[in-house]
C-alpha cells in the first residue's frame, strides 16, 4: 500500500469562524474511512473542503500526489467525486440522464456522451442495483432511491476518491446496511478510497478501516479498535442518556 491521501496543516471553516484547524492526516489507498462527530462539529465542511467545493482557510490536501485544492475543477472532477445531502428539485430528468452527469468532465463542449460513457453509466447502474428504476424520472423517486442514484452518479464520474456526506440518511435499516456494504465493495473490489460521514457510529466502527472523529475543532484519526479505547471517544459520544460499551462495541441507554 502506498500513501495516497495527505492532508497538511488544513484549516476549515468560514472567514469569521474556524471550524477545525491543523488537520494533518496521511492515509493509505483503498481505505473505507468513516467521519464521525456530533452535530455542527464540521463533518460536512471538511468533506466539502476536501472535495474542492468549499474554500479552505489554509493548508494543503493531496490525493495521489495531486494538489486537490489548487488544480482546475475539471482535473479535480476526474480525481474525486462527492455526494452531499443537498436536495434537488429536478423536472424531466430521468435517472440514466442524471447518472450521466457524472461523465461531464469527459464529454465534449456540447456534453455529448460516447459509447464508453454510456457503458460506464450502465455499469454504475448495475453496481448500485438501481436498474429497476433507471428509466424513471428523478422527481418520482423516494429519498432512499435518490441516495443510490447519487452514488451511482459519483461512481460514473470514475474518481478514485469518493466523498459522501451522511449517505445513510433517509434510508431504512436494511437499505443502510446494504449501502454500507456497497461502499465497502467499492473499496475492496474496485480499489476506491471512500470517506463517508455518518451518525451511525456503531456501524461505522464495524465496517470502516479507519475512523476520523471531529471534536472541538480537532480531527482525531485511528483504526476503529484503537479509537474505542480512547477516553476522548467515550467523552464525545456519552451523555446522561447514553453510553458506549467498548466490550460489546455498542451504545446502551442508561
Amino acid at each position: 500500500m502506498k500513501t495516497d491521501l495527505e492532508i497538511a496543516n488544513l484549516s476549515i471553516g468560514y472567514p469569521n469562524k474556524t471550524i477545525a484547524s491543523s488537520i494533518n492526516i496521511s492515509t493509505n489507498s483503498g481505505q473505507l474511512i468513516a467521519l464521525i462527530g456530533r452535530n455542527g462539529d464540521g463533518k460536512s465542511t471538511l468533506l466539502k473542503t476536501l472535495a474542492g467545493v468549499h474554500p479552505p482557510l489554509s493548508g494543503d490536501f493531496r490525493f495521489r500526489g495531486q494538489p486537490v485544492l489548487t488544480i482546475s475543477s475539471s482535473e479535480r472532477a476526474k480525481l474525486l467525486s462527492i455526494v452531499t445531502t443537498y436536495k434537488m428539485m429536478l423536472e424531466h430528468v430521468c435517472v440514466r440522464d442524471f447518472i450521466a452527469f457524472g461523465r461531464y468532465p469527459y464529454t465534449n463542449w456540447l456534453g455529448v456522451t460516447s459509447e464508453q460513457d454510456d457503458s460506464l453509466v450502465e455499469q454504475a447502474i448495475e453496481l448500485c442495483g438501481i436498474a429497476s428504476f433507471s428509466d424513471r424520472h428523478y422527481e418520482e423517486l423516494s429519498d432512499g432511491e435518490k441516495q443510490r442514484v447519487h452514488i451511482a452518479r459519483a461512481i460514473a464520474q470514475q474518481g478514485e476518491l469518493i466523498l459522501l456526506d451522511e449517505p445513510t440518511t433517509h434510508l431504512d435499516l436494511i437499505n443502510k446496511i446494504e449501502l454500507l456494504k456497497l461502499l465497502k465493495s467499492l473499496v475492496q473490489d474496485h480499489g476506491k478510497t471512500v470517506i463517508f460521514s455518518t451518525h451511525m457510529v456503531e456501524h461505522a466502527l464495524r465496517i470502516a478501516d479507519e475512523v476520523w472523529m471531529i471534536r472541538e475543532g480537532v480531527v482525531h484519526h485511528a483504526s476503529p479498535s484503537e479509537l474505542v479505547k480512547d477516553e476522548l471517544f467515550r467523552e464525545t459520544f456519552s451523555s446522561n442518556a447514553v453510553q458506549f460499551d467498548p466490550a460489546s462495541g455498542s451504545f446502551r441507554m442508561i
Binding site: 474542492g52 475543477s73 472532477a77 462527492i82 434537488m88 429536478l90 461531464y104 468532465p105 456534453g111
Partner: peptide, 21 residues
Amino acid sequence: SKPLNSYLLGETYATSIGVNI
C-alpha cells in the same frame, strides 16, 4: 448548453463535476 445543464444540479454539484462556476 453544457454548463447550463449542470447548473440544474446546484452550484456545489456543478463544481464537483468539473464546471468552472
